[in-house]
Amino acid sequence: MPITPSGQRLRLYDSDELDCILQAMARQAAALLPPTQAVLIGIQRRGEPLAQRLQRLLSCQTGLPELPLYPLKVKRYADDLKVLHTQTQLTENPLLGALDLAGNTLLIVDDVLFEGHSLLRTCAYLAQLGARRIYTAVLVDRHVCQQPVHADIVGVHLQVAAHDIVECNVPPYEAEFCIDVLRHGVTLDGRSKKTLE
């Protein structure tokens, strides 16, 4: 991995490892979601392609048609985690407003649960539209959430320094499906770089 001026980039999970993790997440989702009347919500940007992967895996595992999937644009941070907005911005999806959300079970999919602002804003929006049963799934939970939300399905539990940046690289936005951490001025002490599931 290349060394950056501000620290060190470490590869925590490669594509093969993440494929196995997503398989496990899909099994958990299949246990939570009813076979019909379930909907996936992919938080853009990287939550949407992750939801697409789960959509395909769920269909393969259950033998049922792919669940409907709706993207939702929620913006608080740039890719380098600099705050863009004082309030989390959500762009409404008019297709969701036309659904009977009260009669469906929803699974919100995002890449990283950090402080929880995006997930909380999404849950509040869907509740306003009438949703009654909402589950959440994240590829990475950093366990520093400051909001009254949690992830029902977690692929990877990471406990890294607060100033470290966890990068979920998800095609088509990045070429390779992987998780890196950018460590700022931290000397490795030989301990394990990751804790899994």
Rank of each mutant, 00 (worst) to 15 (best):
I3G: 04
P5Q: 05
S6F: 00
S6D: 09
G7T: 01
G7I: 03
R9E: 05
L10V: 11
L10E: 14
L10S: 08
Y13F: 15
C20T: 12
L22H: 12
M25Q: 13
A26V: 01
R27E: 15
L33E: 03
P34C: 10
T36V: 14
Q37C: 11
I43P: 08
I43E: 07
R45Y: 00
R46E: 05
E48S: 06
P49F: 03
P49N: 04
P49T: 08
R53M: 11
R53C: 09
Q55P: 05
R56W: 09
L58S: 07
G63Q: 06
G63E: 02
L67Y: 07
P68H: 03
L72P: 02
K73T: 14
V74D: 07
D79N: 15
D79I: 11
D80Y: 01
L81A: 13
K82W: 03
V83K: 06
H85S: 13
H85C: 12
T86N: 13
T86F: 04
T86R: 12
T88W: 03
P94Q: 08
P94W: 02
P94T: 01
L95N: 09
G97E: 02
G97Y: 01
L99H: 01
G103E: 00
G103L: 01
L107H: 08
I108M: 08
D110G: 06
D111T: 04
L113I: 03
E115C: 14
G116L: 10
H117T: 04
H117G: 08
L120T: 06
A127P: 00
A131K: 03
R132T: 14
I134S: 04
T136W: 05
L139C: 10
L139K: 00
V144F: 03
Q146R: 15
H150I: 11
D152K: 00
V154T: 14
V154R: 10
V154D: 07
G155R: 05
V156K: 01
V160T: 14
V160I: 14
V160L: 15
A162I: 07
H163A: 11
I165S: 01
P171Q: 06
Y173D: 14
I179R: 00
D180E: 12
D180C: 08
V181H: 04
H184M: 11
V186N: 10
D189H: 11
D189M: 12
K193R: 11
K193T: 12
K194E: 14
K194S: 15
L196Y: 04
E197S: 14
